[in-house]
Design a protein around this nucleic acid. Structure first.
Length: 381
DNA sequence: CTGGTACTCATAGCTTACTG
DNA sequence: CAGTAAGCTATGAGTACCAG
Protein backbone atom coordinates (compact mmCIF):
# COMPACT_ATOMS: atom_id res chain seq x y z
CA UNK A 1 0.00 0.00 0.00
CA UNK A 2 2.91 2.37 0.66
CA UNK A 3 4.22 3.79 -2.57
CA UNK A 4 7.61 2.31 -3.44
CA UNK A 5 9.33 5.58 -4.21
CA UNK A 6 8.41 7.26 -0.92
CA UNK A 7 11.38 6.75 1.37
CA UNK A 8 10.03 8.28 4.55
CA UNK A 9 7.94 6.87 7.36
CA UNK A 10 4.37 7.80 8.02
CA UNK A 11 1.56 6.96 10.37
CA UNK A 12 -2.03 6.71 9.16
CA UNK A 13 -4.82 8.53 11.02
CA UNK A 14 -6.42 6.50 13.84
CA UNK A 15 -9.11 4.01 12.80
CA UNK A 16 -9.19 1.66 9.84
CA UNK A 17 -9.21 3.25 6.39
CA UNK A 18 -11.90 2.05 4.01
CA UNK A 19 -10.91 0.36 0.77
CA UNK A 20 -11.71 3.58 -1.05
CA UNK A 21 -9.55 5.67 1.28
CA UNK A 22 -6.63 3.26 0.93
CA UNK A 23 -6.85 3.55 -2.83
CA UNK A 24 -7.09 7.34 -2.70
CA UNK A 25 -4.14 7.55 -0.30
CA UNK A 26 -2.00 5.60 -2.72
CA UNK A 27 -3.05 7.83 -5.62
CA UNK A 28 -2.52 10.94 -3.51
CA UNK A 29 1.05 9.93 -2.87
CA UNK A 30 1.91 10.32 -6.54
CA UNK A 31 1.83 14.06 -5.88
CA UNK A 32 4.55 13.81 -3.25
CA UNK A 33 7.21 11.76 -5.00
CA UNK A 34 8.74 15.00 -6.27
CA UNK A 35 7.87 17.06 -3.22
CA UNK A 36 7.80 14.94 -0.06
CA UNK A 37 8.37 17.89 2.26
CA UNK A 38 4.79 19.01 1.86
CA UNK A 39 3.17 15.66 2.48
CA UNK A 40 2.53 16.34 6.16
CA UNK A 41 0.84 19.63 5.27
CA UNK A 42 -1.54 18.34 2.63
CA UNK A 43 -2.37 14.65 2.98
CA UNK A 44 -5.88 13.70 4.02
CA UNK A 45 -5.09 10.35 5.58
CA UNK A 46 -1.85 10.67 7.53
CA UNK A 47 -1.36 11.54 11.17
CA UNK A 48 2.44 11.85 11.05
CA UNK A 49 5.09 12.05 8.35
CA UNK A 50 8.65 11.42 9.59
CA UNK A 51 7.44 12.20 13.11
CA UNK A 52 5.77 15.48 12.15
CA UNK A 53 2.05 15.77 12.94
CA UNK A 54 0.05 16.43 9.76
CA UNK A 55 -2.00 19.60 9.27
CA UNK A 56 -5.08 17.52 8.54
CA UNK A 57 -4.75 15.81 11.91
CA UNK A 58 -4.36 19.17 13.70
CA UNK A 59 -7.41 20.58 11.87
CA UNK A 60 -9.48 17.48 12.54
CA UNK A 61 -9.02 17.92 16.30
CA UNK A 62 -10.77 21.31 16.20
CA UNK A 63 -14.42 20.39 16.48
CA UNK A 64 -17.05 21.75 18.78
CA UNK A 65 -19.77 19.12 18.87
CA UNK A 66 -20.07 15.74 20.49
CA UNK A 67 -20.67 13.79 17.30
CA UNK A 68 -17.74 11.73 16.28
CA UNK A 69 -18.12 12.57 12.64
CA UNK A 70 -14.73 12.99 11.01
CA UNK A 71 -16.04 15.64 8.61
CA UNK A 72 -17.19 18.13 11.20
CA UNK A 73 -13.90 19.81 12.00
CA UNK A 74 -13.29 23.57 11.75
CA UNK A 75 -16.12 25.35 9.93
CA UNK A 76 -17.35 22.18 8.17
CA UNK A 77 -19.82 21.33 10.91
CA UNK A 78 -21.46 24.73 11.22
CA UNK A 79 -24.49 23.99 9.05
CA UNK A 80 -26.78 21.11 8.25
CA UNK A 81 -26.90 20.42 4.54
CA UNK A 82 -28.17 17.28 2.91
CA UNK A 83 -25.86 15.67 0.41
CA UNK A 84 -22.66 17.40 1.48
CA UNK A 85 -19.24 15.95 0.68
CA UNK A 86 -17.04 14.08 3.08
CA UNK A 87 -14.40 16.75 3.79
CA UNK A 88 -11.52 14.34 4.07
CA UNK A 89 -12.36 12.78 0.70
CA UNK A 90 -12.37 16.20 -0.98
CA UNK A 91 -8.92 16.86 0.47
CA UNK A 92 -7.70 13.61 -1.06
CA UNK A 93 -9.34 14.43 -4.40
CA UNK A 94 -7.72 17.88 -4.55
CA UNK A 95 -4.34 16.25 -3.91
CA UNK A 96 -4.99 13.77 -6.71
CA UNK A 97 -5.38 16.73 -9.10
CA UNK A 98 -1.71 17.55 -8.55
CA UNK A 99 -2.05 21.34 -8.61
CA UNK A 100 0.49 24.15 -8.53
CA UNK A 101 0.35 26.71 -5.69
CA UNK A 102 -1.43 29.36 -7.75
CA UNK A 103 -4.21 27.09 -8.98
CA UNK A 104 -7.93 27.85 -9.06
CA UNK A 105 -10.49 25.19 -8.14
CA UNK A 106 -14.11 25.42 -9.31
CA UNK A 107 -17.20 23.80 -7.81
CA UNK A 108 -20.26 24.65 -9.97
CA UNK A 109 -22.63 23.00 -7.45
CA UNK A 110 -20.83 24.21 -4.35
CA UNK A 111 -23.69 23.56 -1.89
CA UNK A 112 -22.55 24.01 1.67
CA UNK A 113 -18.99 24.70 0.51
CA UNK A 114 -16.99 21.63 1.56
CA UNK A 115 -14.80 21.83 -1.55
CA UNK A 116 -14.20 25.55 -1.00
CA UNK A 117 -13.24 25.10 2.65
CA UNK A 118 -10.75 22.34 1.85
CA UNK A 119 -9.33 24.35 -1.07
CA UNK A 120 -8.87 27.31 1.29
CA UNK A 121 -7.13 25.12 3.87
CA UNK A 122 -4.82 23.71 1.19
CA UNK A 123 -3.92 27.21 0.03
CA UNK A 124 -5.77 27.19 -3.30
CA UNK A 125 -8.08 29.88 -4.59
CA UNK A 126 -11.57 28.65 -5.32
CA UNK A 127 -14.83 29.60 -7.03
CA UNK A 128 -18.15 28.20 -5.88
CA UNK A 129 -21.47 28.63 -7.66
CA UNK A 130 -24.92 27.71 -6.37
CA UNK A 131 -28.46 28.79 -7.12
CA UNK A 132 -29.59 27.98 -3.59
CA UNK A 133 -29.24 31.17 -1.49
CA UNK A 134 -28.85 29.29 1.79
CA UNK A 135 -26.08 27.17 0.28
CA UNK A 136 -24.31 30.38 -0.80
CA UNK A 137 -24.64 31.94 2.62
CA UNK A 138 -23.24 28.78 4.23
CA UNK A 139 -20.32 28.71 1.81
CA UNK A 140 -19.48 32.37 2.31
CA UNK A 141 -19.50 32.11 6.09
CA UNK A 142 -17.64 28.80 6.26
CA UNK A 143 -14.78 30.02 4.07
CA UNK A 144 -14.52 33.62 5.31
CA UNK A 145 -14.68 32.62 8.99
CA UNK A 146 -11.32 30.91 8.50
CA UNK A 147 -9.83 34.40 8.10
CA UNK A 148 -11.69 35.98 10.98
CA UNK A 149 -9.29 36.83 13.77
CA UNK A 150 -11.58 38.29 16.43
CA UNK A 151 -13.83 36.57 18.90
CA UNK A 152 -17.48 37.00 18.01
CA UNK A 153 -19.52 38.67 20.72
CA UNK A 154 -22.71 40.70 20.78
CA UNK A 155 -20.56 43.78 20.93
CA UNK A 156 -18.45 42.90 17.88
CA UNK A 157 -21.49 41.87 15.86
CA UNK A 158 -22.67 44.95 14.06
CA UNK A 159 -26.08 43.41 13.51
CA UNK A 160 -27.48 41.68 16.57
CA UNK A 161 -30.36 39.30 17.14
CA UNK A 162 -32.77 42.21 17.48
CA UNK A 163 -31.87 43.54 14.03
CA UNK A 164 -32.85 40.36 12.20
CA UNK A 165 -35.74 39.53 14.53
CA UNK A 166 -37.74 42.26 12.86
CA UNK A 167 -40.57 42.07 10.37
CA UNK A 168 -39.24 44.91 8.24
CA UNK A 169 -36.31 42.72 7.30
CA UNK A 170 -38.50 40.49 5.14
CA UNK A 171 -39.06 43.33 2.69
CA UNK A 172 -35.45 43.36 1.53
CA UNK A 173 -34.29 41.59 -1.58
CA UNK A 174 -31.97 38.63 -1.09
CA UNK A 175 -29.65 39.35 -4.03
CA UNK A 176 -28.86 42.67 -2.41
CA UNK A 177 -28.37 41.00 0.96
CA UNK A 178 -25.70 38.60 -0.34
CA UNK A 179 -23.63 41.58 -1.46
CA UNK A 180 -23.53 43.08 2.02
CA UNK A 181 -20.38 42.95 4.11
CA UNK A 182 -19.19 39.95 6.05
CA UNK A 183 -20.32 41.25 9.44
CA UNK A 184 -23.86 41.58 8.14
CA UNK A 185 -23.86 38.11 6.55
CA UNK A 186 -22.42 36.58 9.71
CA UNK A 187 -25.27 38.10 11.69
CA UNK A 188 -27.76 36.73 9.17
CA UNK A 189 -26.11 33.30 9.21
CA UNK A 190 -26.22 33.16 13.00
CA UNK A 191 -29.81 34.39 13.15
CA UNK A 192 -31.16 31.93 10.55
CA UNK A 193 -29.24 29.13 12.22
CA UNK A 194 -30.94 30.07 15.49
CA UNK A 195 -34.33 29.90 13.77
CA UNK A 196 -33.52 26.29 12.78
CA UNK A 197 -32.31 25.43 16.28
CA UNK A 198 -35.47 26.96 17.74
CA UNK A 199 -37.62 24.81 15.45
CA UNK A 200 -35.63 21.57 15.39
CA UNK A 201 -34.37 21.46 18.93
CA UNK A 202 -37.26 23.34 20.51
CA UNK A 203 -34.90 25.91 22.02
CA UNK A 204 -35.51 29.48 23.02
CA UNK A 205 -33.84 32.01 20.69
CA UNK A 206 -31.66 33.42 23.47
CA UNK A 207 -30.39 29.98 24.48
CA UNK A 208 -29.70 28.99 20.87
CA UNK A 209 -27.86 32.27 20.30
CA UNK A 210 -25.56 31.70 23.27
CA UNK A 211 -24.84 28.07 22.36
CA UNK A 212 -24.04 28.86 18.75
CA UNK A 213 -21.81 31.85 19.56
CA UNK A 214 -19.88 29.70 22.03
CA UNK A 215 -19.45 27.04 19.37
CA UNK A 216 -18.19 29.57 16.80
CA UNK A 217 -15.77 31.15 19.26
CA UNK A 218 -14.45 27.78 20.40
CA UNK A 219 -13.51 26.91 16.81
CA UNK A 220 -12.08 30.36 16.00
CA UNK A 221 -9.96 30.53 19.13
CA UNK A 222 -8.38 27.12 18.56
CA UNK A 223 -7.87 27.70 14.85
CA UNK A 224 -6.27 31.12 15.27
CA UNK A 225 -4.02 29.73 17.98
CA UNK A 226 -2.96 26.89 15.67
CA UNK A 227 -2.28 29.27 12.76
CA UNK A 228 0.34 31.09 14.83
CA UNK A 229 2.20 27.83 15.35
CA UNK A 230 2.15 26.31 11.87
CA UNK A 231 3.21 27.73 8.56
CA UNK A 232 0.62 27.97 5.83
CA UNK A 233 -1.29 30.32 3.56
CA UNK A 234 -5.04 30.11 3.14
CA UNK A 235 -6.53 30.43 -0.32
CA UNK A 236 -9.17 32.96 -1.32
CA UNK A 237 -12.69 31.88 -2.22
CA UNK A 238 -15.35 33.54 -4.34
CA UNK A 239 -18.97 32.45 -4.02
CA UNK A 240 -21.48 33.30 -6.73
CA UNK A 241 -25.23 33.14 -6.15
CA UNK A 242 -26.46 32.30 -9.61
CA UNK A 243 -27.28 29.65 -12.19
CA UNK A 244 -23.92 27.96 -12.87
CA UNK A 245 -24.34 27.88 -16.66
CA UNK A 246 -24.89 31.66 -16.82
CA UNK A 247 -21.97 32.29 -14.52
CA UNK A 248 -19.43 29.97 -16.18
CA UNK A 249 -20.03 31.69 -19.53
CA UNK A 250 -18.13 34.68 -18.06
CA UNK A 251 -14.95 32.65 -17.63
CA UNK A 252 -12.43 32.42 -20.47
CA UNK A 253 -11.26 29.17 -22.11
CA UNK A 254 -8.68 27.13 -20.18
CA UNK A 255 -8.75 29.28 -17.06
CA UNK A 256 -9.53 26.69 -14.34
CA UNK A 257 -7.04 24.18 -12.90
CA UNK A 258 -9.47 21.71 -11.34
CA UNK A 259 -13.21 21.16 -11.06
CA UNK A 260 -14.48 19.10 -8.15
CA UNK A 261 -18.22 18.71 -7.88
CA UNK A 262 -21.29 16.58 -7.38
CA UNK A 263 -24.55 17.48 -9.15
CA UNK A 264 -28.00 17.28 -7.60
CA UNK A 265 -29.55 13.94 -8.52
CA UNK A 266 -32.65 14.32 -10.64
CA UNK A 267 -35.82 14.76 -8.56
CA UNK A 268 -34.42 13.18 -5.41
CA UNK A 269 -34.15 16.03 -2.95
CA UNK A 270 -36.10 19.22 -2.60
CA UNK A 271 -33.17 21.36 -1.46
CA UNK A 272 -35.40 24.34 -0.81
CA UNK A 273 -37.63 22.36 1.57
CA UNK A 274 -34.53 21.07 3.38
CA UNK A 275 -33.90 24.61 4.59
CA UNK A 276 -37.50 25.78 4.70
CA UNK A 277 -37.24 27.51 8.07
CA UNK A 278 -34.46 29.77 6.80
CA UNK A 279 -36.02 30.16 3.35
CA UNK A 280 -39.38 31.26 4.78
CA UNK A 281 -37.64 33.94 6.78
CA UNK A 282 -36.05 35.40 3.64
CA UNK A 283 -38.59 34.81 0.85
CA UNK A 284 -42.29 35.03 0.15
CA UNK A 285 -44.35 32.17 -1.32
CA UNK A 286 -43.95 33.25 -4.93
CA UNK A 287 -40.18 33.60 -4.58
CA UNK A 288 -39.93 30.17 -2.92
CA UNK A 289 -41.75 28.57 -5.87
CA UNK A 290 -39.41 30.37 -8.25
CA UNK A 291 -36.34 29.07 -6.39
CA UNK A 292 -37.66 25.52 -6.63
CA UNK A 293 -38.28 25.60 -10.35
CA UNK A 294 -34.99 27.34 -11.15
CA UNK A 295 -32.84 24.78 -9.32
CA UNK A 296 -31.62 22.08 -11.69
CA UNK A 297 -32.71 18.59 -10.58
CA UNK A 298 -34.62 19.92 -7.57
CA UNK A 299 -37.39 17.55 -6.64
CA UNK A 300 -40.72 18.72 -7.99
CA UNK A 301 -43.50 16.14 -7.99
CA UNK A 302 -45.38 15.28 -11.17
CA UNK A 303 -43.14 17.27 -13.45
CA UNK A 304 -43.09 15.41 -16.78
CA UNK A 305 -40.49 17.65 -18.37
CA UNK A 306 -37.95 17.49 -15.57
CA UNK A 307 -35.89 14.71 -17.22
CA UNK A 308 -35.54 16.57 -20.50
CA UNK A 309 -34.78 19.84 -18.76
CA UNK A 310 -32.21 18.25 -16.45
CA UNK A 311 -30.20 16.57 -19.20
CA UNK A 312 -30.40 19.55 -21.55
CA UNK A 313 -28.90 21.81 -18.91
CA UNK A 314 -26.40 19.19 -17.77
CA UNK A 315 -25.06 18.58 -21.30
CA UNK A 316 -24.56 22.32 -21.77
CA UNK A 317 -22.85 22.54 -18.39
CA UNK A 318 -20.45 19.64 -19.12
CA UNK A 319 -19.52 21.33 -22.42
CA UNK A 320 -18.82 24.58 -20.56
CA UNK A 321 -16.78 22.81 -17.88
CA UNK A 322 -14.65 21.28 -20.63
CA UNK A 323 -14.15 24.71 -22.20
CA UNK A 324 -13.00 26.51 -19.02
CA UNK A 325 -10.75 23.69 -17.80
CA UNK A 326 -7.05 23.76 -18.67
CA UNK A 327 -5.58 21.04 -20.89
CA UNK A 328 -4.49 17.89 -18.97
CA UNK A 329 -6.37 19.02 -15.87
CA UNK A 330 -9.13 17.16 -14.04
CA UNK A 331 -12.85 17.30 -13.64
CA UNK A 332 -13.65 15.17 -10.58
CA UNK A 333 -17.34 14.32 -10.72
CA UNK A 334 -19.14 12.40 -8.01
CA UNK A 335 -22.52 10.70 -8.51
CA UNK A 336 -24.54 8.08 -6.70
CA UNK A 337 -25.66 4.70 -7.94
CA UNK A 338 -29.03 5.91 -9.05
CA UNK A 339 -30.99 4.54 -12.00
CA UNK A 340 -29.20 4.86 -15.32
CA UNK A 341 -27.66 8.20 -14.33
CA UNK A 342 -24.12 6.85 -14.24
CA UNK A 343 -24.14 5.53 -17.81
CA UNK A 344 -25.83 8.70 -19.09
CA UNK A 345 -23.23 10.92 -17.47
CA UNK A 346 -20.44 8.72 -18.83
CA UNK A 347 -21.68 9.04 -22.40
CA UNK A 348 -22.02 12.83 -22.03
CA UNK A 349 -18.48 13.13 -20.62
CA UNK A 350 -17.12 11.17 -23.56
CA UNK A 351 -19.01 13.10 -26.20
CA UNK A 352 -17.87 16.39 -24.64
CA UNK A 353 -14.24 15.36 -25.16
CA UNK A 354 -13.21 14.23 -21.68
CA UNK A 355 -10.96 11.20 -21.22
CA UNK A 356 -12.14 8.94 -18.45
CA UNK A 357 -8.92 8.35 -16.55
CA UNK A 358 -10.26 6.51 -13.57
CA UNK A 359 -13.48 5.57 -11.80
CA UNK A 360 -13.46 4.84 -8.06
CA UNK A 361 -16.35 3.25 -6.22
CA UNK A 362 -16.95 4.43 -2.69
CA UNK A 363 -19.23 2.77 -0.16
CA UNK A 364 -21.15 5.26 1.91
CA UNK A 365 -20.95 4.26 5.53
CA UNK A 366 -24.43 4.83 6.89
CA UNK A 367 -26.57 2.53 9.00
CA UNK A 368 -29.80 3.36 7.21
CA UNK A 369 -28.43 2.98 3.72
CA UNK A 370 -26.19 -0.09 3.79
CA UNK A 371 -24.40 -0.98 0.57
CA UNK A 372 -25.09 2.47 -0.82
CA UNK A 373 -22.30 3.48 -3.19
CA UNK A 374 -21.17 6.52 -5.05
CA UNK A 375 -18.81 6.77 -7.99
CA UNK A 376 -15.93 9.20 -8.34
CA UNK A 377 -15.06 9.95 -11.98
CA UNK A 378 -11.64 11.36 -12.78
CA UNK A 379 -12.04 13.03 -16.16
CA UNK A 380 -9.07 14.54 -17.97
CA UNK A 381 -9.26 17.23 -20.61
C1' DC B 1 -62.23 25.99 9.39
C1' DT B 2 -59.83 22.12 11.93
C1' DG B 3 -58.05 17.79 12.86
C1' DG B 4 -57.89 13.02 11.90
C1' DT B 5 -57.51 9.27 8.54
C1' DA B 6 -57.04 6.66 4.53
C1' DC B 7 -55.01 6.74 0.27
C1' DT B 8 -51.33 7.86 -3.22
C1' DC B 9 -46.86 8.05 -4.84
C1' DA B 10 -41.97 8.01 -5.14
C1' DT B 11 -37.69 6.44 -3.00
C1' DA B 12 -28.72 9.75 -2.98
C1' DG B 13 -33.79 2.12 -2.13
C1' DC B 14 -33.29 -3.46 -1.58
C1' DT B 15 -32.78 -8.20 -3.20
C1' DT B 16 -32.22 -11.65 -6.37
C1' DA B 17 -31.39 -13.82 -10.60
C1' DC B 18 -29.06 -13.48 -14.75
C1' DT B 19 -25.26 -12.41 -18.02
C1' DG B 20 -20.76 -11.78 -20.18
C1' DC C 1 -17.23 -12.56 -10.19
C1' DA C 2 -18.84 -8.04 -10.96
C1' DG C 3 -22.18 -5.43 -12.97
C1' DT C 4 -27.02 -4.98 -14.37
C1' DA C 5 -31.96 -5.29 -14.82
C1' DA C 6 -36.26 -6.14 -12.98
C1' DG C 7 -39.39 -6.78 -9.48
C1' DC C 8 -39.63 -6.13 -4.62
C1' DT C 9 -40.40 -3.95 0.57
C1' DA C 10 -41.13 -0.33 3.61
C1' DT C 11 -40.95 4.49 4.88
C1' DG C 12 -42.56 9.04 4.78
C1' DA C 13 -44.47 13.12 2.96
C1' DG C 14 -48.29 15.04 0.41
C1' DT C 15 -53.27 15.10 -0.48
C1' DA C 16 -58.14 14.30 -0.70
C1' DC C 17 -61.85 13.68 2.04
C1' DC C 18 -64.97 13.69 5.83
C1' DA C 19 -66.91 14.48 10.39
C1' DG C 20 -67.53 17.76 13.89
Amino acid sequence: MIHDKLKYNFEIIPGELTAFEKKLLKLEQIRYIENPKRFYRESAYLKRVDGKISYYYLFSQIKSNNFNRGSDYLTHGLDFYRGSFHAQMVRGLINYCNLKDTSIILDPFCGSGTTLVEATLLGFDSIGIDINPIACLNSIIKTKLLKYNDAISRRTLEYDLTYFNNEDFANQKYKVILKKDFEYLLGLFIYTRILSMEKRLNMKKETAYKIFLDKLNFILKKYNFLKKKIEFNEGESKILFNDNLTQIKNYPNSSIDAIITSPPYLNLIDYIEEDITKIKYLFNKREIQQLKTQSIGNRILNNQNSHIDYWNKMIKLITELYRVLKKNKFLVFIIGNYGNMRSKYLSHFESSGFNIERILKRKIVNLKKKDNVEYVFFLKK
